[in-house]
Design a protein around this nucleic acid. Structure first.
Lengths: 130, 130
DNA sequence: CTGAATCCCTGCCGATACTG
DNA sequence: CAGTATCGGCAGGGATTCAG
């Protein structure tokens, strides 16, 4: 509100969008959508892995040895529903399933970068005087 | 890995930092630090509110009427420990406590913007062909 | 006014075992 | 190989009550 319909539509922006002024967390808020996609342990590590290219179930399991099959499966399904990645089953034997980021999934790169930068700065200024 | 020690240190970057190659979620990873700060329902809405300037406990409660006192108190304490905001008690009666973002807290603006942009794009391309 | 203490309920996540 | 089914522990978060 208090927006004057000025001419910078290239900045859709948090402050000028009515969806930013919700009084409670709603799934339609873009920020909630993004956080929902990243929600859950291991999720960001999986995305990092897939930013390097497509991976199979086993490759992901090897990259993240502590992650259990069940949770890995859960995360991949969740990221699929969020539009972050797609599954590609290769027919034949042994069965292989490749996971690949969608274009939208690749766009999480800058998001993770923003989170990284903030977290790195937070770490640095941990015991600064305010 | 496969980084060639090239000359662009201005991009601390996710791919070139050893902390990005953890095999399990660790609290020292900057991405985890940032997500930990944003963790929890209502958190981003509180930050949005404080991006507009300092607020008292009651003002925040009025802005987010559905949020219970206990959770509001929890969130504020959590954000304080994360270095996002500081408390300022005004002596006298009635007691008032003002909450204000730290410089580091203000830097969450761009982070929320990145999340917003991604979520808005995800919303738009919800049923696109991949 | 601010915020801590308590209780309960729900959902996440890990381990294990089992199927196409 | 790539998952699903089931169970249990534990932490998140909401309602209510109490205190500085």
């Amino acid at each position: 509100m208090t927006h004057q319909t000025v001419g910078h539509p290239a900045r859709p922006g948090l402050p000028d969008d009515p969806r930013a002024y919700v009084a409670e967390p709603t799934p339609s808020c873009p920020v909630e959508i993004a956080l929902a996609a990243l929600r859950g342990r291991w999720t960001t590590l999986l995305i990092r892995e897939l930013l390097g290219g497509e991976r199979t179930f086993t490759e992901l399991r090897q990259a993240l040895p502590v992650l259990s099959d069940k949770v890995l499966s859960d995360r991949l399904a969740h990221l699929g529903e969020a539009g972050v990645l797609t599954r590609h089953r290769r027919p034949g034997w042994p069965p292989r399933t490749y996971y690949r980021l969608t274009p939208q999934g690749h766009r999480l790169g800058p998001v993770l970068q923003a989170l990284w930068d903030w977290g790195a700065a937070a770490d640095r200024s941990e015991d600064d005087p305010l």
